[in-house]
Computed example of a mutant assay.
Amino acid sequence: MNKPDILCIGSVLWDIIGRSSSHMRSGSDVPGRITRLPGGVAMNIAMTLVNFGLTPALLSAVGRDVEGDELVLEATRMGMITDHLYRSEDLPTDSYMAIEGANGLIAAIADAHSLEQAGTKILRALSNGPLGSSDTPWSGLVALDGNLTRDLLADISKSPLFAASDLRVAPASPGKAERLLALVGHPSATLYVNLEEAGLLCQTTFTSAKDGAKALSTRGVHRCLVTDGGNLAAEALGDDIRTAQPPEVLVTRVTGAGDTFMAAHIASEVQGMAPQDALERALSAAATYVSGETPH
């Protein structure tokens, strides 16, 4: 079995996305297209990493149902390591449903109950040998997904299994952003958030990504990257703050854009790019994604 370049820990599920070119509001009934694609934060990050030539391993909960078998087969086909997935007999494969209109995301429901119920079982490969142990912890990159429970994220922040890891963390949604407070103060954690999520973590609102990045750094976040749609994005590492402007594109989809940004940034750093170049390349990759020019 190949050694992975990075571990992607979190939601691996099916995305059911309904998209319409019409502007929508509550109660709208419009024509469009409905697709089912592999998704979830951990899976979205892994798919982009594969596109950049990296080999990710998935650590998640996937049911032993038909949907789960299809999902694992697809992930393997794309080049991901799926040997360490927790395959439950009792828990169904998770799913995510979203409606997107010309005016952006209208509504979404994330059913990640199986991942939440599986808890620490998804980390078995890190404690029993295949990917590490307490004595010889995994010393590489880890992409963490905010779909994990607050308790599990708190356990990870203190666990010797992650003592040597380079943690990269993304909230699953603004509604789950506050779960990441468990990782504030972690010596190696890098948080990837948007402007709204930065405000939720700091219990305020910000008018710019730069202000949000500064505040998170002051609050004790080791390193953070804050995006704000088509507006200026910022990265903070201590007192060192850099900014970059995303390219202007026509937005045709939004689900998965933040995951694409995070994965592209990680891949750029793995490939040795300078910090400013890595930030700009990640913004370009996310802009290309939302324009619909690259496959999910």
Rank of each mutant, 00 (worst) to 15 (best):
G40H: 08
F52I: 02
S11M: 14
M47K: 15
R150A: 13
P137R: 05
T136C: 08
L153R: 01
R242A: 09
M273R: 14
L126K: 04
S88P: 06
L216Y: 09
A233D: 06
S20M: 03
W138L: 02
E269M: 11
I122N: 00
A244R: 04
G119C: 04
A236C: 08
G185M: 03
Y289V: 10
I34Y: 06
L201T: 01
T252W: 01
S159T: 03
T207F: 11
R77I: 04
K210H: 12
V66W: 06
T93S: 08
H222E: 10
E178G: 02
T136G: 03
S11F: 11
H113A: 13
G104D: 01
G212K: 01
G185F: 01
Y289T: 09
T190I: 15
A264I: 09
P4S: 09
L200K: 13
T207P: 00
W14K: 05
R179H: 11
V12F: 09
I45M: 12
S133T: 11
D135S: 08
K214L: 15
H23Q: 12
V41S: 13
D277Y: 06
Q276F: 08
L167C: 06
L225P: 07
E280M: 12
T190P: 10
A182T: 12
L123I: 03
A278F: 07
D239G: 11
H186Q: 06
L144I: 09
S291Y: 03
R253L: 06
K158E: 14
G10V: 11
L105P: 07
L181M: 13
L183V: 02
C224F: 01
M80C: 13
G10D: 04
V62G: 00
